[in-house]
Every structure is written in structure tokens, then in C-alpha cells.
């Protein structure tokens, strides 16, 4: 894969934001808010941090770093990043959420979309899956790292804490979990719906190494913090990055609210959004 400069990746991030808005508008359904907020972390992983092979896609991913999306509803950003990494044709983004598409509303392996290794959408399951993949890497003497991404609201699921206990108790140290810490979920602010309390202390109490990033929408910062996580890994403890982001980042009227969690913009709103995201040399799908 081409080694992009930070400046190029920032332009790519704008393109991916255009993709998100256009995909959700085309389908008139989908989840733009969380997708916009997670652009930087996925761009950092797929274009800077991870060693991975888009073609030919290999389910077992031996010798590759692996990524698992546990908050499966942010498919717009996930599919855009996978397509622009070379896993499948960018033109296929046209089919998002439409009948007979490989780009299901939530990620699925069922239609054999390259890049997807597990279905997600029903929340709270991805950490367990990522831990299993990390254990397989250890058994295979495969020295690469497993990453997973979770919503902060998703941490209300009990299975997450079963997995958190396991990862620390069994020293799964080739694994980095990332929390999209935007304080938003469908019904409102996470702190109002079901407060998470002091997340850092919670993970530390479970035996994890914690890295915090207050600037989860600043690409350089995300890359720096992910490298910090990598440096902390392989020391008998799992690592978590609490990545503070803004839901809807990049489109002013989608920011600072949970209202755009799972809602498609109309034609006028789409125009307004795209005006804030100028066209790039990468080109629209």
C-alpha cells in the first residue's frame, strides 16, 4: 500500500467523510454520526498503523494485523476505508444497504465482502471475538496485533466486561481495544442514559493499560496514541485507547448531538454537508 503523508491522509479523511454522507444519502438510511467521528481512527489504523493485505483477502489473516469493528453500525466509514484501502472496488459503495449488495447495513461475512472477518451489529460481542483472534495468533506464533473498536454506549453490554476480565486475567497482550468516547448513544448522552463512571479507572482496575487521547479527531494525535498503545503492548497486559471524539465531526449541524446517530440527511442537508467537505483528488465513488 502507498505510504501516504499526513497531509494526504487528511485529504483522504475528507473524501471518506464525503463517502459517508453520500452513502447514507443514497440509501436513505444508515449511521452518519458515529461514522464521521471515527474517520481518523480508521484512517490511522488502515493507512499508517496496521500491516494488512487487502488482496487477496485472507480470512485467517496470518502475518497480518487484524481489526474488528464491534460497534457494527458505523459501516459507512468502515466500508469507505476498506474500499479505499483496496479490499473491494470503490464503486461498490453505491450499493450500500441496497438489495443484493455485499455491503449490508451491518458488517457481515455472509456475502463474502473482503475485509470483514465477523458479523457485528448486535453490540458487545466484538471484544470477545478479537480476544479469540489474538489467542489464535499466539498459538500460531504470529507476532502481529489485533485491534477492536467499540462505542462508549456499547460498554453498557455485560459481555464487554466478561471479555475485559478475560483479557487481563489471561494476559492477552497482543490486543489493543479502542473506545470511541463520544458520550453519545441513541437515546441521548451516555452520562444521562447510563453513566460509565470513570472509564480509565475501571479498565485499570480490571488490569489493563490505559491510554487516553483527548483529540480523537486529530489524525497526528491518533497515530501518536496508537503507537503509544503498541509500545505498551506485549507486556503481559491488554491495552485500551480511550479515544475522545465528536459524533458527526466535520459536518457542523451533525456535531454536538445524538440526533444523527442513525438518520439519513435529505437532499438539502446533504448539499449543506458536502459544501463543508470539498471534493478531493481521490474522487467520489
Amino acid at each position: 500500500m502507498k505510504n501516504y503523508t499526513i497531509e494526504e491522509l487528511k485529504v483522504l479523511s475528507t473524501q471518506i467523510r464525503r463517502d459517508i454522507i453520500r452513502m447514507v444519502f443514497n440509501a436513505q438510511s444508515g449511521h452518519p454520526g458515529g461514522s464521521l467521528g471515527c474517520v481518523e481512527v480508521l484512517v490511522a489504523l488502515y493507512f499508517k498503523i496496521m500491516k494488512h493485505q487487502p488482496q487477496p483477502f485472507n480470512m485467517d489473516g496470518i502475518g497480518e494485523d487484524l481489526f474488528f469493528l464491534s460497534n457494527g453500525h458505523i459501516t459507512p466509514v468502515y466500508y469507505s476505508v476498506l474500499a479505499r484501502s483496496g479490499y473491494f472496488p470503490i464503486s461498490e459503495l453505491h450499493t450500500f444497504r441496497k438489495i443484493n449488495s455485499r455491503l449490508q447495513g451491518h458488517p457481515a461475512t455472509h456475502e463474502h465482502l473482503p475485509g470483514i472477518r465477523i458479523a457485528s451489529g448486535s453490540l458487545g460481542q466484538g471484544m470477545s471475538v478479537a480476544i479469540g483472534a489474538a489467542l489464535a495468533k499466539k498459538l500460531n506464533k504470529d507476532d502481529r496485533t489485533v485491534f477492536s473498536l467499540h462505542g462508549d454506549g456499547e460498554l453498557q453490554e455485560g459481555q464487554i466486561w466478561e471479555a475485559t476480565m478475560f483479557a487481563a486475567g489471561k494476559k492477552v497482550d497482543n490486543y489493543i481495544a479502542i473506545i470511541d468516547y463520544n458520550n453519545k448513544q441513541i437515546d441521548g448522552n451516555v452520562e444521562d442514559v447510563m453513566p460509565l463512571g470513570n472509564l480509565k479507572l475501571k479498565f485499570e482496575a480490571f488490569g489493563w493499560k490505559v491510554v487516553e487521547n483527548p483529540d480523537g479527531n486529530q489524525l497526528e494525535k491518533v497515530i501518536e496514541k496508537l503507537n503509544e498503545c503498541l509500545n505498551l503492548s506485549r507486556k503481559q497486559q491488554p491495552v485500551v485507547l480511550i479515544n475522545k471524539t465528536e459524533m458527526g465531526y466535520g459536518v457542523d449541524f451533525m456535531m454536538g448531538t445524538h440526533k444523527w446517530h442513525g438518520k439519513a440527511p435529505n437532499e438539502e442537508q446533504t448539499k449543506l454537508a458536502l459544501n463543508q467537505l470539498p471534493e478531493t483528488p481521490f474522487g467520489d465513488f
Binding site: 480470512m59 472477518r117 465477523i118 470477545s128 471475538v129 480476544i131 483472534a133 489467542l135 498459538l139
Partner: peptide, 14 residues
């Protein structure tokens, strides 16, 4: 629940 998820993950890697 965690056991089932870990089992699913272990298949990724053969």
C-alpha cells in the same frame, strides 16, 4: 457469552 465470542475469534487463524 464471552466463551462463544472467543471461540468465534479463534477460528480466524484456523
Amino acid at each position: 457469552a464471552n466463551m462463544m465470542g472467543i471461540a468465534a475469534g479463534l477460528t480466524i487463524g484456523g
